[in-house]
Design a binder for these strands. Structure first.
Lengths: 161, 161
DNA sequence: CGCCCTTTCGCAATATTATTGCGCGAATGG
DNA sequence: CCATTCGCGCAATAATATTGCGAAAGGGCG
């Protein structure tokens, strides 16, 4: 499952633009289309490439506001966590959800059109599950957002090239 | 730029899987391929669909650890913000970056292989720009992560269907 | 109520791109 | 040094995207 320099180049390109024809990718990484295509296939089978998706403009679909919601709880067991996760899954406005170490127990990123919609979300949320301590932080602006992961840390065998 | 029910169905599908053939999308939304294709084109031109990307498995590219970094600063001017943004842009391990209201001024999400790599990142960061107060929170696990935005809030004209 | 205009549709033809089969040469390992 | 394996690239085939064009549906206006 190790990736060589060419694989990483391919991934870099696909993370930017997944519509690029394999032939063009091949040209950019110095490979003909067939081996390039086979590498991509393999990385999909291996699960390195999970999927290809369309990325929308948040403002254009009216969810220009991001809110980070921190949750503290007394319930520190697995069953409760699963329940919480299940509840969150039902909310499409929660786009990220993490279990945290330290001060807060959970952190989620929520996207909504405005403060009012966030309040609706908040009320719906606390009606579905009992939360001890919830704190909301509003983003005034998104300065950077990328789905592209850094490849500098990827496992490598062959790095002479 | 308003979206009707069919448009939203198309977007829902494309947010899940951007490789789906237009013909199949058309079938699922009750349209033949041509009008379906034209709708997709239009949404791309309008910028509703920003781009299509490959989503990688963080663990498979060795960035399984997420850290949220909160920054407080005394510099509350636009020039400094731009400089900060410029610095952050250079770090591929910072995948999200927000200007916040309230307690903290900036919040970023950083992906790294492990704590050690985070420490390296941290040192590099503070060497490039002077930050008053930095606080790091480690995610123990990613419970939910999606690039799909909710479409329930999108502007609609024709919603009889 | 009917007509015209605008919009959106769908079929069929064409162009692009993905995918497969096959043979070649380089690297590997004994 | 030989044999095996691996990755490459060409050329053929299959799938999909894209375009041209005419037909149907909706909407405003006489």
């Amino acid at each position: 499952m190790a990736l060589d320099k060419i694989d990483r180049k391919i991934l870099t390109l696909l993370q930017k633009d997944a519509t690029m024809p394999v032939a063009e990718i091949g040209r950019k990484v110095g490979l003909s289309t067939t081996p390039c295509w086979r590498r991509i296939q393999k990385m999909e089978e291996d699960g390195v490439i999970q999927r290809r998706v369309a990325v929308l403009d948040p403002a254009k679909v009216n969810v220009g506001v991001t809110v980070f919601v921190s949750v503290k709880t007394n319930e520190h067991n697995d069953a409760w966590m699963r329940k919480f996760a299940g509840v969150i899954d039902e909310f499409p406005e929660v786009v990220e959800f993490y279990r945290m170490s330290g001060d807060v127990d959970y952190l989620m990123r929520v996207v909504v059109p405005d403060i009012g919609a966030y309040d609706s979300f908040y009320k719906k949320l606390i009606s579905k599950i009992n939360l001890t301590d919830v704190s909301s932080a509003f983003a005034m602006g998104q300065i950077k957002y990328t789905t592209a992961l850094p490849l500098d840390f990827a496992i490598v065998v062959d790095d002479d090239k």
